[in-house]
Amino acid sequence: MKSISKYFLNGLIIIVPIAITIFVVAQIFSFAENILGRHLPQSIHFPGIGLLAVVILLVLTGWLSSHWLLKEVLQWGERLAGSIPVVKFIYNSVKKISTALFESQQLLKNAVLVPYPHQGVKALGFLMPELSVPLAQHFNEEHVCVFVPLSLNMTAGVNILVAKQDVIALDVTSESALQYVLTAGAIMPDTGKATNI
């Protein structure tokens, strides 16, 4: 009976991630197909056209944005959005987040330990970009920004400013650090040396 339970758990460990991945990819395909299928005649509709159209749209927009005319149009649109109070806040926030996520190669890459929520305990976090001058000028010693995510929920957490000398850099892969957070510690990060940054 023990061996059956063991095999059952092993099966779950193998099948569940594959099933979730297939489900997510299938949903993306389905969403793209449904959106495009409403506006195209049935004669030119074929499986995969939605995803193909999204990829072409992204590449075309990126290519056009490198030309001066579209740059001028985009800048005009940004100035227009910047003149409307509520829209300005939403647009600027989303743009900054998108830029940080898609352009930064180091976001959520450097796993560290920090004293949080108080001295005497440690929490796993991720080193964020360098502090801006308005923040850094309020400290006598060098501080860094660390994002401490909530377990089971990477979309929530706190950003804390910590003295650099109190931050311990972890010699672990970013994937294993993320797994540690997402599983509430059920999967521990890969072991490795830890040194002060």
Results as ranks from 00 to 15, higher is better:
H67I: 14
H67S: 09
L70M: 15
K71I: 03
E72R: 09
V73W: 10
V73D: 00
L74C: 06
W76P: 00
G77W: 13
G77Y: 13
E78L: 14
L80D: 02
A81N: 05
A81I: 13
G82E: 07
I84S: 00
I84V: 15
I84W: 12
V87M: 13
K88E: 03
K88P: 01
I90P: 03
Y91H: 13
S93Y: 07
V94W: 04
K95M: 06
K96V: 01
I97D: 02
S98C: 08
T99M: 04
A100Q: 14
A100D: 11
L101E: 03
L101N: 04
E103P: 01
Q105A: 11
Q105K: 14
Q106T: 10
L107A: 02
A111P: 00
A111Q: 01
A111M: 06
V112H: 01
V114E: 03
P115E: 04
P115H: 05
P115T: 01
P115C: 04
P117K: 04
P117C: 06
P117I: 09
P117D: 05
H118V: 13
Q119G: 01
Q119E: 15
Q119I: 12
V121I: 13
V121W: 05
K122I: 06
L124R: 04
G125F: 04
G125P: 02
F126G: 04
L127E: 06
M128H: 05
E130M: 06
L131C: 12
L131E: 11
L131K: 10
S132W: 13
S132I: 15
V133G: 00
P134C: 12
L135F: 00
A136K: 10
A136L: 12
N140M: 08
E141Q: 15
E141T: 15
E141G: 00
E142K: 11
E142D: 15
H143T: 04
V146E: 07
F147H: 09
F147T: 09
P149L: 13
P149K: 07
L150D: 11
L150V: 08
L150P: 00
L150A: 11
L152S: 11
L152A: 01
L152F: 14
A156K: 14
V158W: 02
